[in-house]
C-alpha cells in the first residue's frame, strides 16, 4: 500500500479557511495545534530526504566516524554497476508482468461483477482477501504452493504428465514466481478501484446499448465500458506501478534476490547495500533514483486523477 497523491491542485486552491475573519483571531492556536505534526513531518520525512541527498554525495559507510564528499561519484559508479542495472531490469520486468495482468484481470472481473447484485458482496470479500492478508505470512504459504518437489502445483503437473516447474529455485522462473504472487496480492485492490469507477456507468446506458444491439460481452466492454472506464484505468495503472516498484516482502521472504540475482529488485538492493553492505553513500544514491522513479509515477497519477475529475 502506498500513500498516493490525488486531487493535489484542487486542494491547494481550496486550502483556505472557511471563514477568514473568524480564523484570524487564533494565530497562536494555529501554530500550537499544527506544531506537533509539522515538526514530526519535518523530522521524519523532509529532513531524512535532504539527508539522503547529501549522503548520496559522500562515501559514508555505516559505523564509520568519517566521511568525505565525492561529488557525483556514487552516481557514476551506479551507472557502471551491473547489479544496479540488473535490479532495475528485474523491477521493470516484474512491473511489466504484474501491472498489465492484475489490472486487466481486475477489469474483467469488475465488468462481470458489476451486473451481479446479490452475490457481489461475497465475491468482493473473497477477491479482497489477499489485499488485507499479511504478505509475509502468505509468502511462506506460496513457497510451498510453488515448490517443484512437494507442492500442489508440482503434484498437478506430474499428474498431467509434465515435468514440474520449480518456480522459486529456477533462475529463469523465479521472477515469474514472484510476479504470480504479486498479481494475486494486487488484483483485489485494483478490482475495488474499478468497481468504484463502474458506478459511473448507469444501468440505463447499458440497457439502451442492449436495445441498440450492443449485446455481447466483448462489444459491451469495447463500446461502453472501456470509454467510460479508461480514465479510472490510467489511475489504477499508475498506483499499480508504484506498488510493483515497491515489491520487497516476497523477495525478502522467498528468494533473497536469488537464484544468482534473478529476483533482486530495486528496493531489495537498496536495503541490502544500505543496511547489510553498510554502504550508506551508495545506498543513498540508489534511494534517490528510487525516489525519482516513484515521484514520476506519482506525478503521472496526479495528472491522471485530475484529468479524470474533469472528464
Amino acid at each position: 500500500m502506498t500513500h498516493t497523491l490525488s486531487m493535489a491542485d484542487e486542494s491547494l486552491a481550496v486550502a483556505m479557511p472557511v471563514s477568514k475573519n473568524e480564523g484570524a483571531g487564533y494565530k497562536i492556536h494555529g501554530y500550537v495545534f499544527s506544531a506537533p505534526a509539522f515538526l514530526l513531518l519535518l523530522a521524519t520525512v523532509i529532513a531524512p530526504i535532504v539527508v539522503v541527498f547529501i549522503v548520496s554525495l559522500t562515501n559514508y559507510k555505516l559505523g564509520r566516524a568519517s566521511l568525505s564528499f565525492i561529488g557525483l561519484g556514487n552516481y557514476t559508479k551506479l551507472l557502471q554497476d551491473p547489479y544496479f542495472w540488473n535490479a532495475l531490469k528485474n523491477s521493470a520486468i516484474y512491473t511489466a508482468i504484474v501491472v498489465p495482468v492484475s489490472v486487466g484481470l481486475a477489469l474483467i472481473v469488475a465488468a462481470l461483477l458489476s451486473s451481479r447484485t446479490r452475490s457481489r458482496r461475497v465475491y468482493e470479500v473473497i477477491y479482497f482477501l489477499p489485499v488485507t492478508s499479511t504478505l509475509t505470512a502468505m509468502s511462506i504459504v506460496w513457497s510451498y504452493l510453488l515448490n517443484g518437489n512437494i507442492g500442489p502445483l508440482a503434484t498437478l503437473m506430474t499428474s498431467l504428465g509434465m515435468k514440474p516447474l520449480d518456480f522459486l529455485a529456477d533462475s529463469d522462473l523465479a521472477l515469474f514466481g514472484l510476479a504470480i504472487i504479486g498479481t494475486w496480492h494486487m488484483l483485489g485492490f485494483n478490482l475495488i478501484l474499478f468497481l468504484a469507477g463502474f458506478t459511473t456507468i448507469s444501468k440505463e446506458l447499458t440497457e439502451a446499448a442492449q436495445l441498440d444491439g450492443i449485446d455481447s460481452f466483448w462489444d459491451r466492454i469495447r463500446y461502453i465500458i472501456w470509454p467510460l472506464i479508461a480514465p479510472t484505468t490510467i489511475v489504477v495503472v499508475a498506483i499499480s506501478c508504484i506498488q510493483a516498484f515497491q515489491a520487497f516482502d516476497t523477495v525478502a521472504v522467498l528468494t533473497n534476490g536469488g537464484p544468482y540475482g534473478a529476483t533482486e529488485m530495486l528496493l531489495y538492493k537498496i536495503n541490502q547495500d544500505s543496511f547489510i553492505g553498510l554502504k550508506a553513500g551508495y545506498g543513498s544514491a540508489l534511494t534517490v533514483i528510487y525516489l525519482i522513479l516513484i515521484g514520476l509515477f506519482s506525478i503521472f497519477q496526479v495528472m491522471a486523477t485530475n484529468k479524470k475529475a474533469h472528464f
Partner: peptide
C-alpha cells in the same frame, strides 16, 4: 485557523504523500 505559513505547511503535507516510507 488563518495563520502565516499555513500554505507552506499544506504544501509540505502534499509533498510528504509522494515520499515512500522506505526512502
Amino acid at each position: 485557523y488563518d495563520f502565516r505559513g499555513r500554505k507552506i505547511l499544506f504544501a509540505l503535507v502534499l509533498l510528504s504523500l509522494a515520499v515512500p516510507a522506505q526512502a
